[in-house]
Design a binder for these strands. Structure first.
Lengths: 105, 105
DNA sequence: GGCCACGGTAACCGCAACGTAACCGGGGTG
DNA sequence: CACCCCGGTTACGTTGCGGTTACCGTGGCC
C-alpha cells in the first residue's frame, strides 16, 4: 500500500487505548516486547498524526496519560477488518507457504 | 500490527489483478514506479503465500501470467476498508500533522 | 551478425526501522 | 547518603526493505 499509517506497534497501542486512557508504564505491561524507546517513538508519531493525545500531570512521581482521539477510533473498523481476515485466512496462507517450501525442497 | 501481509506494493498488485490475469509487463505499466526487481520479489512473495498463481507458457517470446486466487480475493474487503478510511480521514491526519509542526515551530 | 521482446537475476547500496544498553532529573523514602 | 519510581533520552549497532544498474537466455526478424 502506498500509505503507511503508523509503524509496527501503532495498531497495538491503539488497541490498548480502546477502553480508556493509559499511562506510559501501563502500556509497557501488555507490550512487554517493546522497548521504552520504540514505544515513545510510536506514541510521538501517533500524537503527531492526531490519533492520540498526551496529557502530562504535574505530580510526583510524574504521570503521563495517553488517550485515543476520535480520529484514532475511526481506524478501528479497518483494523478489525484486517484482524478478521487474519482470523479467517491466516491458516490458509501458512499452509500455502508450507506447500511452497516443500515444492522448493 | 504484528503481522505484515505482503510488502509495500502487494496491495497494488492485487488491485491490478482484480479484473483478470495480467502479464509481467502489463503489471509494469500501471506500476511504472516499481522496478522489475521489486515487482518480481512482490510477485514471488504473493505466490509463496497463495495469493496469486504464476503460469508460464512455452512460447516465444516467453509469456507469464499472474492471476489472483480466492485467498487473494479474500483480502479485498479489508483492503477496501483501509482505502475507505484513507478517503475519509487522510485529510484530518495531514491537518493534525501540520498543526503539530506549527506548534513545534 | 546484430538487434529486439520478454521475463527475469545478480551485485551492490542507502536509509529507515528496530533493538540494546546506558543514562537523566527530580522528588520521595529509608 | 543511597536508592527507587516515572517517563523518558542518547548513543550506538544491526537488519532488511526498497532502489539502481548491469546483465542473462531464448528464439525470431532483418
Amino acid at each position: 500500500m502506498p500509505f503507511r499509517i503508523g509503524d509496527k506497534w501503532a495498531g497495538m497501542v491503539l488497541t490498548c487505548l480502546r477502553d480508556g486512557p493509559r499511562r506510559f508504564s501501563e502500556l509497557r505491561v501488555p507490550m512487554h516486547r517493546v522497548s521504552a524507546k520504540v514505544l515513545a517513538e510510536t506514541l510521538r508519531a501517533l500524537e503527531r498524526d492526531g490519533m492520540v493525545t498526551r496529557s502530562e500531570y504535574d505530580e510526583v512521581p510524574p504521570r503521563v496519560e495517553y488517550a485515543i482521539t476520535p480520529l484514532g477510533r475511526s481506524l478501528f473498523p479497518a483494523m478489525d477488518a484486517c484482524r478478521r481476515w487474519a482470523d479467517d485466512h491466516l491458516g490458509e496462507l501458512l499452509a500455502a507457504r508450507e506447500a511452497y517450501a516443500e515444492r522448493g525442497a
